[in-house]
Structure formats: C-alpha cells, structure tokens
Amino acid sequence: MKLAYYPGCVAQESGKELDRSTRYVCRALGIELAEFPSFSCCGSGFVDEANEVLNVAINVRNLAIAERAGLDVLTICSTCQGMLSLANLRYRDPRVKERVDAALRPLGIEYRGTVKVKHLLRVLTEDGGIARLQQKVVRPLGAVKIGAFYGCHLLRPADELDWESAEEPHAFEDLLRAVGATPVEYRGRVMCCGFPIQFVKPETAGRIAGRQIEDAKAHGADAMATPCPLCHISLDAYQNRAEKAVGHPLDMPVFHLPQVVGLALGATPEELGLARHLVPVAPALAKMGSAAPSR
C-alpha cells in the first residue's frame, strides 16, 4: 500500500516522536509513504474560523498535490483529518468551488475530487487491517489498560466525515485489543481535549482536559492513547494545567497511537521517542513488561 504522507505541522515540530513512530509502524507493516515537501498546514481549524473559503482553498491545493501523484492521503492527526475531509466536502458546494477555482486556476492547480483522506487509525483497522496487524505483533502489551481518546475532528460532524459512529466508535478499541492491550470504556473518550482554547483561556482548557483524564483514570486506565498530536499537547504537555484545574496530581501517561502499535511490533522506547513526553510513561511501560526509555 502506498499513500501520500501528510504529517501535519506538530509532528514536524514539538511532536516529532509521532512522525518517528508513524514511520516505524508503516515500515513494519509494509505501508509505503510518499512524501510531498510542498504540502502546507491544514489550518488546524483556526484558519477556518478566520476565513472559510481560504481554508478550503489551501487544503484543496494539498489534495490536488496528492491527486497528481494518484495517491490517497494518510493523516496522523485528527484535526488534519477533519480539515482535509471538510475541504473535500465543501469544495462540492458550487459557490465555494467557484471562488476556490478562481484562486487556483491561475496557478495551474486543478482538483477533480478523487482523493480519499484516511487517518492512520482507519488504515490500520479497515479491510482486514486488524488481522494483518495481529500477525505482526511480537510483544503483546499484556495487562496494561489503555483509554483511547479519539479527538473531535476524527469523529465529528459524523454525517460529513463518513467513517466511524461519532457516539459509539470502536476502531481504536479494536486496535488496542489487536496489540494485546485492554481498552477502557469511558465517556471522555469521544469528548474534547480542550486544545482549541489552550491559548485563549488556559484554565478552562485545563478543566476540560482534566475532566477527561480523570474519567479515564476512574475507569481504570493505566495510560491513554490518542490519534491526534493536538490532543497529545493538551493531555500530556499541558497536563500540569489539568492538574491545577482538578486540584490534584493525575500522573497519566499519554501515548500517540503509533507508539502503542510500535511497542507491540517490537520497537524500543527510544525508537518511538517516548522520552520526549512531559509525563513519564515508565509506569505504563512497566505494566507492558518494557523498560523505561533512556533518552
């Protein structure tokens, strides 16, 4: 399988461990990643708030790059997934299309609308992906209980994104079972991480993140895992804000999705960049029977 790899901004900066672990997992599973250094940022929902048509246009440009290569797009971020999918959809509105085309045509950019945008979670789980993954697992994750945390834009608005049920998704839990972990069912798994207002009103964002982390904890989670690097920032890098909001320590390790898969495929914590997290993952690794990352 060959896909146009859309890493998004965070995985190329503060979330480099996500890029690294994605590459590890794709190499191990025979997913070929085609790279396009001309891909731009998806706008992360913020550009959409400032200028909807501009946001569609920059993402149609991204989609057109993949279309020229005849490839579908692989995303590793719930927000990139949402923005690129919505661009695909909104471009079908003739009034939007007219304005977007007027901006793209002079640049020689044409988009026929043939590209599918798929998140890594979907690529790993659909069309027999679970069974293929299970065959490659060399180190089942054992007794560790993991709370999947989906990220809003991977699920909603469900009628526009055309994949999982927004209220009862199960792909992530299926994936966790496939690598030998025990998924934890909790309401917070489909809720918001607070990221969009981390820089607008940090104390409210912290309260929202804290709510979901506490919920996972109350249902027995040893760790959480997310397919979205923005959720990861909110839940891991800013877990101190969440702790301040709830008034006590949370100590919740938070994995990126491909890190969990990578561990089961035999990767070392170093190969997955696990030492880059703000909240130490060592307690969760111990439950998996792995040693803590050394750097």
Partner: peptide
C-alpha cells in the same frame, strides 16, 4: 464566542 471548542458535540 471564543470559548467554543468546535468539538461538534452540539451538532451531533
């Protein structure tokens, strides 16, 4: 207005 998280839970 700017406290909306655009999580789309309302739309759902």
């Amino acid at each position: 207005l700017w406290l909306c998280l655009r999580c789309h839970l309302c739309t759902e």
